[in-house]
């Protein structure tokens, strides 16, 4: 039977499992430690406050969500390098390149592991630990997720009470927007560190951060005029504000948010696709 050189479901399935096993072997222990960061921070705060005589102080949902984001930031920086940084190593990388699996399959498996499986497992573990902490600690009444939703509702209600403009603006910012934006931005960051892991031979995370700042500065210089064009006419807004025409301000604000969100989506999708293309090309052309 003719071998499919681009994609075969059977081969991909086998490779995905084998690749995930390798990721677990390389990153499993670190993953466990990172996933337990929230619990460790919670215990640390409690123990320190207890020892200092203030009694047991339980970290509230806001503090615990901060621990969660710190842990996630560590995961984003460490995971791509631990899972795929070996590709630039001559010995390990050569073995990997010579594996009879197509570049498309290796690339897709890399994306699935780094963008879906490992982050999902991390959030699942973290939320489960948070749920457990909340269930066992009588001082706590709400999990991170529960508190986040409550907080969102409070902000929206408060904004609506304050002014008509605020109420209109909050209509654009839904829970879905926030979740989508967080996922989107996280994916971009993971891909950036993944690209750094397979591009640089040493000091991968540091070089990635430096390159990120460098490219970010360059992009902001290039894209600021484009963004202004996209977002709308400031003069109209200033005139509307000066004249005290609430309707005109509201219209401008609606247009502004809608355009800004469109621009952000286009920019993020372009960035995602660009980085994916760069990762694929690197895998296709890497030499040892």
């Amino acid at each position: 039977m003719e071998t499919n050189n681009i994609f075969s479901f059977r081969r991909f399935g086998k490779y995905l499992v084998s690749d995930l096993k390798r990721c677990i072997a390389n990153f499993g222990l670190s993953f466990l430690v990172i996933s337990l960061t929230g619990l460790v921070c919670y215990l640390l705060v409690g123990v320190i406050s207890y020892v200092s005589g203030a009694g047991w102080v339980s970290s509230n949902a806001l503090a615990r969500s901060l621990y969660l984001w710190i842990a996630f930031a560590i995961l984003v920086v460490a995971m791509p390098n631990k899972c795929y940084g070996f590709i630039t190593d001559r010995k390990l990388g050569s073995n990997w390149l010579m594996l009879p699996v197509s570049t498309v399959e290796k690339f897709l498996s890399m994306l699935i592991n780094c963008l879906v499986i490992i982050p999902s497992a991390f959030f699942l573990c973290s939320f489960a630990i948070d749920w457990l902490i909340t269930a066992l600690d009588p001082q706590l009444h709400s999990t991170i997720i529960g508190s986040g939703m409550e907080l969102f509702d409070v902000i929206v209600a408060k904004a609506a009470e304050e002014s008509e403009v605020n109420a209109l603006l909050t209509n654009f910012i839904t829970e879905n927007n926030i979740i989508f934006s967080a996922i989107d931005d996280s994916m971009i960051l993971i891909l950036a560190f993944l690209l750094g892991a397979i591009l640089f031979k040493s000091q991968k995370a540091t070089k990635t951060i430096l390159a990120w700042f460098g490219i970010g500065t360059l992009l902001s210089i290039i894209l600021t005029p484009v963004a202004i064009m996209f977002v709308g006419n400031y003069d109209l807004a200033v005139n509307a504000l000066n004249s005290g025409d609430i309707e005109a301000v509201t219209t401008f604000a609606q247009d502004f948010i809608s355009s800004a969100m469109k621009f952000d989506t286009i920019f993020d999708v372009t960035l995602l696709l660009g980085m994916e293309a760069a990762i694929f090309m690197r895998l296709k052309t890497i030499k040892h």
Binding site: T3, N5, K91, L92, S94, M98
Partner: peptide
């Protein structure tokens, strides 16, 4: 081109072998 059809028909044994935790 590193096509699976050829990769499955060849093996390269390097002088310097990778030591893996397995």
């Amino acid at each position: 081109d590193r096509e699976p059809a050829l990769l499955t028909e060849q093996y390269y044994l390097s002088d310097d072998n990778a030591s893996v935790h397995m």
